[in-house]
Design a protein around this nucleic acid. Structure first.
Lengths: 117, 117
DNA sequence: CAGCATCCGCCGTGATACTG
DNA sequence: CAGTATCACGGCGGATGCTG
């Protein structure tokens, strides 16, 4: 039951909500492009999940797959512009995490300007 | 098994990943503050889920609950600064959704170039 | 109106093993 | 290396019904 398909926030959330999705996009953005690379970067992910996420992202047009029919099979995944457009969101989350979830957590009076000045 | 608790992105994602969480925060930001109001705005949400999300958000310090011990019970939920700090992320997702997912709220402005890159 | 209790089903995810 | 197949578990979220 998709909350509300006419809502851009929901749709983006749907794409991004997977446990590994954002991390995957981030790794891709940082240059990891091989399956085994990603597997190592995303510590703990199972090949199945990685494969699933990759495929989903591919179908969304967020990542592009390049296959090299070489002797040692090689496949590279790269972010499309649509995928790169996700980065600001990730950055926003990183910033939020740093400013509000880092040192002084929850239930605090919470200053208006945490780290920013 | 929490991906990586030392990663700000993951921590934010953990908070934000609930199906209704972001919408809830957004409704709160838009002025909905009563339980039944939220229930109506978030079409389809069950009271259970709403209650659960609200409580979780409260424990995170993202929303604050104000109880009015009146004859008709009244409770108001408001965003804390920590909750309001989530808004840019939501905006980012809305923008992304509009530009890349073809979900358009005709009433909203589109500050960037859609197919720029 | 506000909110909790219970039951249940779905989906994402994890673990492991196997294939091209 | 780059996946896929299978099995199973857990948590989130949905539906209903009840209480203060």
């Amino acid at each position: 039951m998709p909350v509300d398909e006419s809502c851009p926030v929901c749709r983006t959330a749907d794409i991004v909500c997977g446990k590994w999705t954002l991390l995957l996009v981030r790794e891709l953005a940082e240059g990891c492009s091989r399956f085994c690379e990603l597997e190592r970067s995303l510590t703990g992910i199972s090949p199945r999940t990685l494969s699933l996420r990759l495929r989903a992202l591919e179908e969304e047009g967020i990542v592009e797959r390049a296959t090299f029919p070489e002797v040692p099979p090689r496949v590279e995944y790269v972010l499309t512009p649509k995928g790169e457009a996700l980065l600001p969101i990730i950055e926003g989350m990183r910033t939020y995490g740093q400013e509000w979830l880092g040192a002084s957590c929850a239930s605090e009076p919470a200053p208006r300007e945490p780290v920013a000045a």
